[in-house]
Nucleic acid binder design. Structure first.
Length: 284
DNA sequence: AATCTAGGCAACCGCCAATAT
DNA sequence: TATATTGGCGGTTGCCTAGAT
């Protein structure tokens, strides 16, 4: 009955990956592509669980991953998407090319969450903390809301009590805040008409958001297939040392999708999104 | 210089829907 | 149809590092 176990628990290594393990995994996937993760450790000569291999690849070794802190545009997008989707990190990550759910989750917990709290914004509901407290005692005064850490563009939407504004995250410290939400982010699957209106308005002013906020937009992850060009493969095969390989990978991660020859994996709309992001980053 | 503390991040854990047998 | 496993996800942990004392 059923399938074979993913891996026998005995003899499976845990903890940080070594450079040698990374090399084996990269070599295997570049040669064979992603197939059955259960078989990967055995075929690649790794004493790891298939699950661990998948995680290591998707979160760290994938050549199209970006490195470094999230840009202002990305941070803004994360906040907007979180307001709509809640803690559905994989959905959010799918709309940020080159970023992983783990990375976004970590960035949220370590940076964005604090920024929002500092501003008096509840990172869960995306509503002013002061307002929530007041809901218990008394209705909030609109003038009070606008005073909260100087939220210049915060406006209260009647009935749905959504908070919306437009700003880049670099302005967060200057107390502008960008988000749209239903009264509960966890109920994001049913977007209210008011929220749709807010999102449409955001999209009109921001082509990037317009593309990325499309609920039915194709997800980047679903297209991930690793069609590495023969030229790139040859380059990798000719590398004499692990350092060469690692440097090559890191170089690739500094480039964009196009530099790596992934253009064929994406349709016109997705490529347009990538180009927009590239343009925005170049302007910074 | 040694120790303590907090922040950041990679990796693991446990759950669940999808799927193979 | 029932059962077991896979793959994927979100939550959490624990290690490492930098800054403070």
């Amino acid at each position: 009955m059923g399938r074979q176990p993913c891996c026998d628990k005995l003899g499976v290594k845990k903890g940080p990956w070594t450079a040698d393990e990374d090399k084996k995994l990269i070599n295997f996937i570049l040669t064979n592509g992603q197939c059955c993760w259960r078989a990967v450790p055995k075929l690649a000569g790794l004493r790891r669980c298939g699950k661990s291999c998948r995680l290591r690849w998707t979160n760290y070794l994938r050549p199209d991953l970006k490195r470094g802190l999230l840009s202002d545009a990305e941070e803004k997008l994360v906040i907007d998407l979180h307001a709509r989707l809640g803690n559905r990190w994989s959905k959010i990550a799918a709309r940020l090319p080159g970023r992983t759910d783990n990375e976004i989750k970590n960035h949220w917990n370590t940076h964005i969450k604090k920024k929002l709290l500092k501003m008096g914004i509840d990172p869960v509901t995306h509503e002013p903390l002061k307002k929530e407290a007041n809901l218990i005692d008394q209705p909030i005064q609109e003038s009070d809301q606008n005073k909260i850490n100087g939220h210049q563009q915060v406006q209260v939407v009647p009935e749905c009590t959504s908070v919306t504004a437009a700003a880049t995250s670099s302005e967060l410290d200057n107390s502008s805040y960008s988000a749209s939400s239903t009264s509960s982010s966890e109920n994001s699957s049913s977007i209210t008409d008011e929220s749709k209106l807010v999102l449409n308005t955001l999209g009109e002013n921001d082509p990037l958001l317009s593309s990325l906020l499309e609920v039915d937009a194709p997800l980047v992850d679903s297209l991930w297939e690793l069609p590495v060009s023969s030229e790139e493969q040859k380059k990798f095969d000719n590398m004499t040392s692990w350092d060469d390989s690692l440097n090559w990978l890191l170089d690739c991660q500094d480039f964009g999708i196009h530099d790596f020859g992934f253009d064929n994996c994406f349709n016109d709309v997705e490529l347009e999104v990538f180009n927009t992001i590239d343009d925005m980053e170049n302007k910074q």
